[in-house]
């Protein structure tokens, strides 16, 4: 795996505000890397520094084993970039815009046209729209054109800033599938605040909060490590007494009521310290309280759970040892 992107103590200040603080990242390719954070976390500032639109206040960065400062043209030739809100010359058609981008990369007209048509199709833009002025296009269509222009030069590293933010649910699925397929060949660095999207396509993720890197890890191991196992329990009868008893059990970290799935039933969601111990003790406790067990299922933590758990300032991130994974 080659090192596609590396930052070392990357920092950017706007006056007194530190938008990005001492960011250390190393992204290996190929694959899809998720760059996650709430709005204002510093994702776009980081990306704008990566592509050379902003200068870092301090720190270093390398793209594709090159310094973008000293080898700017060389790096940009191998780079694809989609900004958060891609904007185009409104008087141009989508096809013309891609031909212009091809021209900037020095592609021959014929090759540029062939590549433009291939990408317009691949990005889900229908043929009748290709020659219409971009001014009349929807936000989703512009986003797709933005992705197409980022791929015009067959880049080795693609940096996408919120690539699906303007798309409807079906459009999102299309584009995420495209991102996933690109990730098999090249490195895709994708920022988003939509956790489900990142979870769907990214094997590795970094989470940024207030400009600081909270975590950088494989998505699967992060989900295992950063969130306590959860059990959803549904019983026939009332859980009030059971909840009181479980609250003092050493293997229970937190419990909360669960919306009853059917009449006459009630439920609890338990965050547990030891899944195996809980799976043994829970049925026993249900029987002891004279309740009928309807279901008991371990819930898989989502990246959203991880994100909330990490961002929540009151909850410290449990270490691997703590979780016992």
């Amino acid at each position: 795996m080659s090192l596609a992107l590396e930052t070392c103590a990357l920092t950017r200040c706007f006056g007194e505000v530190q938008a990005v603080e001492q960011l250390d990242l190393a992204v290996h390719g190929p694959g899809v890397f998720g760059f996650l954070g709430a709005n204002g976390a510093g994702k776009t500032t980081t990306i704008r520094m990566l592509v050379g639109l902003l200068r870092p206040t301090s720190g270093e960065l390398r793209l594709l084993d090159q310094s973008p400062e000293t080898n700017a043209l060389l790096v940009r030739r191998r780079l694809g970039y989609l900004p958060q809100d891609p904007a185009f010359h409104p008087w141009m058609s989508g096809e013309e815009y891609l031909l212009h981008i091809g021209d900037l990369f020095g592609l021959a007209r014929k090759e540029a046209r062939r590549r433009a048509h291939e990408l317009l199709e691949r990005c889900g833009l229908e043929k009748p729209a290709w020659r219409r002025r971009v001014a009349g296009w929807s936000g989703g269509m512009k986003q797709r054109l933005g992705i197409a222009q980022a791929l015009m030069n067959r880049p080795e590293l693609i940096i996408l800033d919120e690539p699906v933010s303007a798309l409807d649910p079906l459009g999102r699925i299309d584009v995420l599938e495209l991102v996933e397929s690109l990730g098999r060949e090249v490195t895709v660095f994708m920022s988003s605040h939509i956790l489900a999207d990142i979870e769907r396509v990214c094997e590795e993720v970094a989470i940024l909060d207030h400009g600081k890197l909270l975590v950088h890890e494989k998505t699967a191991s992060l989900k295992r490590r950063a969130v306590r196992p959860t059990i959803e329990l549904v019983v026939r009868g009332d859980t009030v007494a059971l909840a009181k008893a479980l609250a003092t059990a050493p293997w229970v970290e937190r419990l909360e009521p669960l919306e009853a799935p059917a009449e006459g039933t009630s439920g609890l969601r338990l965050k547990v310290r030891e899944l195996a111990e809980a799976q043994l003790a829970l049925p026993k406790a249900v029987v002891e309280h004279g309740l009928g067990l309807v279901s008991m299922s371990p819930a898989t933590p989502s990246l959203e759970d991880v994100f909330i758990s990490l961002i929540d300032r009151n909850s410290a991130v449990p270490t691997t040892e703590e979780v016992g994974a």
Partner: peptide, 14 residues
Amino acid sequence: SRRIAPMALVKPVS
């Protein structure tokens, strides 16, 4: 101001 220029200026151009 429309953010059109940055999209072109990240290409291999001066």
